[in-house]
Nucleic acid binder design. Sequence first.
DNA 1: ATGATATTTTCCTAAGTAGGAAAATAGCTA
DNA 2: TAGCTATTTTCCTACTTAGGAAAATATCAT
Lengths: 100, 100
Amino acid sequence: MNAFKAIASEPRRRILNHLAGGPMTVGEIAAKFDMAMPSISKHLSVLKEAGLVHEQKRGQFVIYSVASDNLVNALYGFLTPFCPDARRITAGRKRARKSK
Amino acid sequence: MNAFKAIASEPRRRILNHLAGGPMTVGEIAAKFDMAMPSISKHLSVLKEAGLVHEQKRGQFVIYSVASDNLVNALYGFLTPFCPDARRITAGRKRARKSK
DNA sequence: ATGATATTTTCCTAAGTAGGAAAATAGCTA
DNA sequence: TAGCTATTTTCCTACTTAGGAAAATATCAT
């Protein structure tokens, strides 16, 4: 159950949540976070290892997407409205989507 | 959301699961795990900090119990039947209860 | 092939964590 | 009080992780 370790990290939870806005490339994700791309890439590989995201190569790009079929993800999505911290992250995502 | 970090550790998930059998003292818990009592005690304090267990002092004993009102715990309980690893842990608990 | 862009890998350092042993604390009982 | 038991705290070592910089890889466009 690596998924628990994967979501134990706040940066990864934020990435996962940002990714919930739809499939996107590593660069698009990195642009939204104050973190170097290699670090983002490593977090993504942890999430992939845990089965929480899917990866699809498109030319030079790698498109990541939430593994919505994953039960843990589903539960986390369900949990979000109830947890202050998770809610804060979600609020940030909505803000980001609007301002785009 | 320290709960995620708390359940990211397999020993803590096992402790939590063992504790689901009912309230018990640190010694009773430690007896079931191949780990020194101080280590168990520290794991319990992490779980308590995360709000996943309750603590009640009874003389020289400290009785711990699952914080069943905690949403994360509830979700973990729900998740158990679906996850191979979680199921293995649960099986261990049932075995332990029967052999008592 | 050359150059440009996207991503990952490698290597490093700083920080966090797990677990044990021994000491400290708390509370019971005589 | 002293002695006993239960638990926690402190201190230590080994291991893991996060994150950045630089190098390597992959793919596209010329």
